[in-house]
Amino acid sequence: MTLWLDDAPTDREMQLVGQVARQVSGFAGAQVEAIAVRRSLGSHDILETRILRRDLVNALEGRGSPEELWITAKVKMEPDSVAADGTFIANDNAYPAFQWGVAPVVIQQVGDSKSGAWLADLNVDLLASLDLMPGLQLSGAVRRFIGGNLDQIGKASEASDLPVVRSDIRDFIKEGRTAIPYLQADWRGGLGENLYGRLSAGIFEQMFGGLSLEMLYRTPDTAGLWAAN
């Protein structure tokens, strides 16, 4: 049995794979001997983790351990295509997928001899994301100022010979009590064998927006990675 999870692997990948396999094992038919969980970017499979069902059942029933489960598990990058003669069940409710949340945000500056040793603002963000299809996501946030003194930050010195970088930050802080810290569209997907890409456009942070392109090539059969932005 093979399951597909959209989006790239996370730093909790093994834990997530174990949770998915455990849920599936309870209702899978007796003929299912292994459970494979695949990660995909768009329509491109990039990673497969295959677990033997008997080892999973033994671990759940106390006759084995999670360590023994992962000893026999197999992980493969760029897995081969699944045979077309199998039975495929699509999740028609997967897209579009909307998520939202609220989070506190603290912005601070430390060590400015003119403005003060420590300046900080407390804000609250209303976050939202919309997955339109595999690999395509819209995301953004609305930020509201709660309190703080970051608007007391000193103005950039006009006499400095250093390149001007974020010199308008004080204006952004004073005039952006209600602001959009980011609003962007992202596409991630496979461009070919061992080649992946990301294209982003929009407002990436408080004072920066534009177009971003990233490509990543994984050297076959090695751990080497080559990236270009």
Score class of each variant (00 low, 15 high):
P66L: 05
W100Y: 10
L119I: 07
D7G: 12
E68H: 05
V24F: 15
E68V: 02
N93T: 15
G64H: 10
D131F: 04
L52Y: 03
L126E: 01
G135H: 05
A28Q: 12
Q137Y: 02
S43A: 15
A34N: 05
D112A: 07
V57F: 13
A59C: 14
Q108M: 06
G42F: 10
A128C: 07
E48Y: 01
G116E: 02
Q19P: 08
A36Y: 06
M133P: 01
V24L: 15
P9W: 00
V24M: 15
M77H: 09
A30F: 14
G29D: 11
P9N: 02
V110E: 01
Q99D: 08
I71M: 13
A8L: 08
V57A: 14
F27E: 14
L60P: 10
R54Y: 11
I51T: 02
A97D: 03
A120R: 03
D85V: 09
E61R: 13
V110P: 01
L60V: 12
V105L: 00
D7I: 08
G135V: 06
Q15S: 04
G64D: 12
D55W: 11
D92C: 13
A84V: 14
L127R: 07
H44Q: 04
V82M: 09
A90V: 14
A8D: 06
G18C: 01
E33Q: 15
T87H: 13
N91D: 03
V75Y: 11
Q137G: 03
Q19S: 07
A97H: 05
L119T: 03
G101K: 02
A59Q: 15
I51V: 05
L69T: 02
T49H: 09
L122F: 00
R39N: 13
L138N: 02
N91A: 03
Q137I: 02
A34L: 03
V105C: 00
V57G: 11
R54D: 09
A28L: 11
V20M: 14
K74A: 07
Q15K: 01
L126R: 03
Q31Y: 05
G111T: 02
F27Y: 15
G135E: 05
A28Y: 12
G111M: 06
D92W: 14
S129E: 10
D45T: 00
P9A: 00
A59T: 15
A73S: 10
L119S: 05
V102R: 03
G42Y: 14
D11V: 13
A73T: 09
W118V: 06
A97T: 00
Y95A: 07
H44N: 02
V20T: 13
V17D: 05
V37Q: 00
R22D: 08
A8Y: 05
N58S: 12
V32K: 09
L41D: 05
F88A: 07
V17Y: 06
P134M: 08
G42A: 14
L41A: 09
E13L: 15
A117H: 13
G101F: 00
S65K: 13
Q109G: 01
A97P: 00
T87A: 09
Q109E: 01
P134K: 11
A141W: 04
P96A: 12
E61H: 10
A128L: 07
G42I: 14
N91G: 01
G62C: 15
I89L: 14
I35F: 01
D45V: 01
L122I: 00
A73C: 09
D92M: 14
S65E: 09
P96F: 11
S113N: 06
L132D: 04
T10L: 12
Q15Y: 04
M77I: 10
Q99I: 04
A73Q: 06
P134W: 06
A94C: 04
